[in-house]
Design a protein around this nucleic acid. Structure first.
Lengths: 213, 213
DNA sequence: CGTAAAATGTTGCAATTGCAACATAACATT
DNA sequence: AATGTTATGTTGCAATTGCAACATTTTACG
C-alpha cells in the first residue's frame, strides 16, 4: 500500500516537515494519542511504531477499527476521531508527527517537487481509503450473514485473483468487520461448509464455487 | 459543500483543463456515462446538469447511491464503478469532463497556483467523502434498526445543531441508506413515536429526548 | 514451560427482521 | 382534472439473528 513519504528522499522529508510546521511526539506503549492531540484539523503520521484506532461502544465492547503502521496516516475526519467512542492507542513506543491540515492546503511551497509528491501521495492514500470504505459498505449493506460472507469472499477473491481467501486477522475480527455476531457467523460458515460452498483450514478459506452472482 | 473549481477563475479553469488533457462529453437525458467511459484511472466532473450513481442488485432492485450536481466528481474507485452493479445515469442533458487520474498525480504544473488550488480542493472533497462514509458505517454497523435510527438522528442532530431532523429525500431512500427493510423501518419509527422518543410531521422528525448515549 | 487470556465451536431460545401483500396517500405528467 | 406512478402505513408470518452460556483449543507471555 502507498505510503505517505514514497518517492521523497529523507533530505526532502526533513525539509518538508519543516515547511509543514510538523510537531513530533513520542508516545509510550499503551497510551492514547488523542489525549495529547485532538484538534479538528490535525493530520497524524506514524513515523516509527504501531498504533490502533479503537472503538469502545456504550456497552464497553472494544473493537479495532484500523491498524496503523509506519508512514500510515490518521486524522480527525478520516479516522472518525470526532466521535468520542473512538481513540488511538499506541501498541508499542511510537513516534508520531502531527501536521495542521490547513497548512497542507494553504502551503506556499507549490514550486517544490517533493511537496507535490507529498500531496499526490496523500491523494492516492485518500482514494484507497474511499475504495476500502466503499467495499466495506458494499458488504455490510447485504441483508443476510450469508450474503455478507459471500460478498466479502467475492471481493477478496477478485482482489487477489485466487479462490483462496486468507484471513489477515482472526475470525473474531472478521465478525467485527462485517458487523455481525461472531457465533452467528460461525454458524453460517459451518452451513456454507456443510453445503459444499467452502472449505476452511485455519485461516485459509477455499471457495469451491466458481462465481458468486 | 466544497466544489472542485472553488477559488479558480474561469480563465484558469480553461488552462487547467488543457493541462490535464480533459475530455469533454455531452450525455443525453437518461443515458449511461459508463457505457462511454470506464477506464480505471478516470476522474469525472459534472460541468452542467445532474447525474445519479445507481446500483441495481441481482434481484433487479435499483437504489440511488449518490447524486451528482454541478462541479461534483465521480471516479472508478471513489464511486465503486469497478462493481458491475453500479452505473452512472444522467438525469438531464449533462456535460461531463473526464480526466485521467494519473495526469493529476504526475502533472508538471506544480508551479501554477491554480493547479495547487485544484489538488487542494480535491483533497478536501476526498476528506469529506471519507467522513461521510465513516458516518454511514457508524450507523450501519449498529445491530438493531432502532439503534441505526437513533445513531442517524444523533449524527444529523449534531451536524445541524438542532433537535429537528429533516429528511432530504424520502423515507424509502432513508431505508436504503440505512440498509434496512422499509416496512421494518416504518414499524420501528412508529414504535419510537408511541414510546414518546420522536415526533414525525411530513419530512420533519423531532427528537424529544436530550441525548442518545 | 506453565498459566492466563483470547479465540473458536456449538446450541437453545427469544427477539428482531425481511418479505409479501395490501390499502391508502401523495406526487407527477399530460 | 384525470390517471398512472411512487411513497407511505400496516400486519402476519417465517426466517434470520443476536445473545448468553458453555466447552475446547490456541495463543501470548512471564
Amino acid at each position: 500500500m502507498k505510503k505517505i513519504f514514497d518517492n521523497i528522499s529523507s533530505q526532502n522529508k526533513t525539509k518538508l516537515l519543516r515547511i509543514l510546521k510538523a510537531h513530533q511526539f513520542t508516545f509510550k506503549k499503551d497510551t492514547s494519542i488523542l489525549s495529547t492531540v485532538k484538534e479538528e484539523n490535525m493530520l497524524g503520521i506514524i513515523i516509527k511504531g504501531y498504533a490502533q484506532i479503537i472503538r469502545t461502544d456504550h456497552n464497553g465492547n472494544r473493537t479495532i477499527i484500523e491498524e496503523l503502521e509506519e508512514e500510515e496516516i490518521f486524522g480527525y475526519d478520516i479516522s472518525s476521531l470526532g466521535n468520542k467512542e473512538y481513540d488511538i492507542i499506541v501498541k508499542e513506543d511510537t513516534e508520531v508527527i502531527i501536521i495542521d491540515y490547513r497548512i497542507i492546503l494553504n502551503c506556499e511551497a507549490n514550486n517544490k517537487a517533493f511537496y507535490n509528491t507529498f500531496t499526490n501521495n496523500l491523494l492516492e492514500i485518500f482514494t484507497a481509503k474511499i475504495k476500502e470504505k466503499n467495499e466495506r459498505l458494499e458488504i455490510i449493506t447485504q441483508k443476510t450473514i450469508r450474503n455478507k460472507l459471500l460478498e466479502y469472499f467475492s471481493i477478496m477473491s477478485k482482489k487477489y485473483g485466487s479462490k483462496y481467501v486468507y484471513l489477515s486477522s482472526t475470525f473474531t475480527n472478521l465478525a467485527d468487520y462485517l458487523a455481525i455476531d461472531r457465533s452467528a457467523m460461525t454458524r453460517e460458515l459451518t452451513n456454507l461448509k456443510n453445503e459444499g460452498f467452502i472449505e476452511i483450514k485455519g485461516k485459509r478459506i477455499t471457495l469451491l464455487y466458481n462465481e458468486y452472482i
